[in-house]
């Protein structure tokens, strides 16, 4: 099987400082990869390099495109990369307001990606928007409300609906549960797990919350100071951490 995403030796430097370096991995279709580490360990830099938001200083990111097979998204032209960004890729931001248009109704937010790829039948767009609001447990009568009238958890679910409406194959998530209270987090994780399984999505999830990766991720990558210090199956890494930093990370989780 061809990996959906092959990452080879990605490095990003901020002047003399290391953003992330020597990162390589393969992601197969349907697989969920978690990236954990403390603040400043280079998780978000890595994610932004993979998603085309930041140009990496070296390395290649080969994505298995529908038309031409594996292609390097770093050297691919900007129109093609942006096209991927609104069709086969999705990016869920930590703060929903970074990923939503706050002045546009929920329906418009969900419909934007459809319209961006050429949908121009109002009835169809609205029907799909309603269907997706239902799938992320937002009631249909809120379709014409603006996201600013939504709670934090609803905004995050709306952001997920808006991203998944075009049926992407790869989802990048940057701390999708950050800033939500625990019960809302649990519901969101449940929803995400259901969607990932149902749609057969591949996902890369950046988080500092080990509970999130335990629930969602098949594989885990632990980062520290821009380097990957350990990777493996999630349960294996969390139950039997090898690297000193991973051991520290696992032992520092609060038990209730």
């Amino acid at each position: 099987m061809t990996p959906l995403l092959q990452v080879r030796d990605i490095a990003k430097f901020y002047g003399g400082r290391i953003g992330c370096t020597d990162v390589s991995f393969d992601l197969y279709p349907g697989e969920v990869l978690g990236i954990v580490g403390e603040s400043g360990s280079g998780k978000s830099t890595l994610l932004n390099c993979l998603a085309g938001h930041l140009p990496p200083d070296q390395g290649e990111v080969l994505f298995d495109t529908r038309a031409d097979g594996p292609r390097d998204t770093v050297t691919m032209s900007e129109p093609e990369r942006r096209m991927l960004g609104r069709t086969d890729w999705a990016f869920v931001h930590q703060h929903a307001r970074d990923g939503l248009r706050m002045g546009v109704s929920a329906g418009g937010n969900v419909g934007e990606r459809l319209m961006a790829v050429g949908a121009c039948h109002y009835g169809d767009i609205r029907e799909q928007a309603l269907d997706w609001l239902d799938r992320v447990e937002i009631s249909g009568d809120r379709i014409d409300d603006r996201p600013s009238a939504f709670s934090g958890g609803m905004q995050q679910r709306l952001q997920i609906a808006r991203n998944l409406v075009t049926g992407p194959r790869l989802v990048f998530m940057d701390e999708p549960t950050g800033g939500l209270d625990v019960s809302v987090q649990a519901r969101l994780l449940d929803l995400l797990r259901g969607l990932v399984r149902d749609m057969g999505l591949s996902a890369i999830i950046v988080t500092h919350d080990l509970a999130v990766v335990r629930l969602l991720a098949d594989r885990l990558m632990v980062m520290k100071s821009g380097h990957v210090v350990e990777q493996g199956l999630t349960d294996q890494v969390l139950d039997d951490p090898q690297h000193g930093y991973t051991q520290l990370l696992v032992s520092s989780v609060l038990q209730v």
Binding site: E78, P79, R82, V104, G107, G108, R113, Y122
Partner: peptide
């Protein structure tokens, strides 16, 4: 430059929705 005009339809969508 990249002919990304989906947003224009979002404006019209909002008109109809409202």
């Amino acid at each position: 430059a990249l002919e990304e005009y989906g947003l224009m339809h979002v404006k019209l969508y909002e008109d109809i929705a409202r």
